[in-house]
Design a protein around this nucleic acid. Structure first.
Lengths: 252, 252
DNA sequence: AAGTGGTCTAGACCACAAC
DNA sequence: TTGTGGTCTAGACCACTTC
């Protein structure tokens, strides 16, 4: 079950062993799993390696520890969970819908509004790419999206690329890693133009998501405003309780 | 700068050393920080301990690594960031507003709707506590909140406790740890009753947040529906790119 | 070739929980 | 007292990047 000559790290193999046991019913919610020392002896690997595996599963919310007692299986998560940052297309597919896209406009803008430059941290260049798209699910319009992309990074983005996922372009063409996104979500009444494009009547509610997305070096590469039909879209997220820095002091 | 006899773990001290250096301008965005081996020698601690400190800062988005190159300072985060799960009161205070609360009703319900029991995972008991509150910021109504609490856990919750934060009760009275929350966010037009309580006109948009919150053992303790005035509230979150399990296979 | 982060070992002592 | 997770050590070899 653990292969020391695999290219897969040992701790990843231990993670898979544990998650498989949980899935297949070997361990249930609230169960105590074998101690770190037991597992390290069972697999003939060091305790630190077992800890690395367990740490990862604790961070994922699959296990939890109690000091002095042991490590336990957490209750399974319920419902649809949005893991990480996904593109519109992937989001729709996970909901069982078929996504499609219509590009409304695609152009380079030389003097965009200050707040766009601020969000993209490119005040030096004063040049961004603007991309407007209508997003469909099962042929029905669901959202109007206006994206501003850093010109530095996307100078080679072609019109053909705009029909698909910008995130795929970042990962596959630019070979960069997407790390985090800051989002602001608000509710509003649809404007006249958006209402027409979304095929909803005046006075209908919409969900507006403003997202700025960052690479792992902390550089923002896109800031996007998306207007969703409220009757066709809700936003699902999972939040973790990242605790603040603790206020402990030295006693020496 | 590092105290081996402190009660504070060494890796926490290294974390603080690095974040302080970054804050005070010792290192800037994109800068290469000293290598793990350099730091371990400088502080006369082992490399694994330095790694634990750096891992934590990488997870927080403060540093990032590049294999073969080194560890770098990430660009600072912009804007208001909601760290972790906060109560309404704390959320408002962070926005510079003074929160207050009016309890509309507080009662035990014996046969609540099935979906409430499912979310609280207490089908066995068929008994929950219902708490309806109006939430104010600077004396103005901002949200209508309907919370369902697990009876098992909150049997001792008194009417006086309901004016404040349920999360404080969980942490201080129950001495339990809040771990994660699943949330669904949607937009809608305000209903008649809520519109009256929120003092907004018919047809106004509202942001509806449905939240279920879990302890670290995976047990849900509350499920809450909150209706916010769209003109007074937007929801801010940060998402991280938790990557899926990689599809690597053994070559042996 | 030299330096970096990624993985791993075989121990150690500590604080805490349960008995 | 025994067993648990929490912290820490002093090494090791690997894959990768840069020169």
């Amino acid at each position: 079950m653990i292969n020391k000559h695999s290219s897969l790290p040992l701790y990843t193999q231990v993670e898979r062993y544990l998650t498989t046991e949980i899935k297949n019913g070997g361990y249930h919610s609230g169960d105590l799993i074998p101690s770190e020392r037991e597992l390290s002896e069972k697999f003939q690997i060091s305790r630190m390696t077992v800890r690395q595996a367990i740490n990862n599963l604790v961070n994922k919310g699959i296990l939890y520890r109690e000091r002095g007692k042991g490590t336990f299986v957490a209750a399974p998560k319920i419902g649809y969970q949005l893991k990480g940052i996904v593109s519109f297309s992937e989001d729709m597919r996970r909901r069982g819908l078929e996504p499609s896209t219509k590009v409304v406009s695609f152009k380079t803008i030389s003097n965009p509004p200050e707040h766009i430059l601020n969000k993209l941290a490119c005040q030096d260049e004063k040049k961004v790419i603007q991309l407007e798209r209508i997003r469909f699910a099962n042929e029905e319009p669901v959202a109007i999206e206006t994206a501003y992309l850093s010109y530095k990074l996307f100078a080679n983005l072609s019109e053909e690329d705009t029909g698909g996922s910008i995130y795929d372009f970042v990962r596959k063409e630019l070979k960069l890693e997407i790390h985090r996104a800051e989002q602001q979500i608000e509710a509003a009444i649809v404007g006249e133009k958006d209402g027409f494009l979304l095929d909803i009547s005046p006075g209908s509610p919409v969900l507006i998501v403003n997202r700025t997305t960052y690479l792992s070096n902390g550089v923002p590469f896109e800031t996007v405003k998306t207007v969703f039909r409220a009757d066709r879209y809700h936003f699902s997220i999972e939040m973790k309780n990242e605790q603040e820095d603790d206020h402990v002091f030295s006693r020496d």
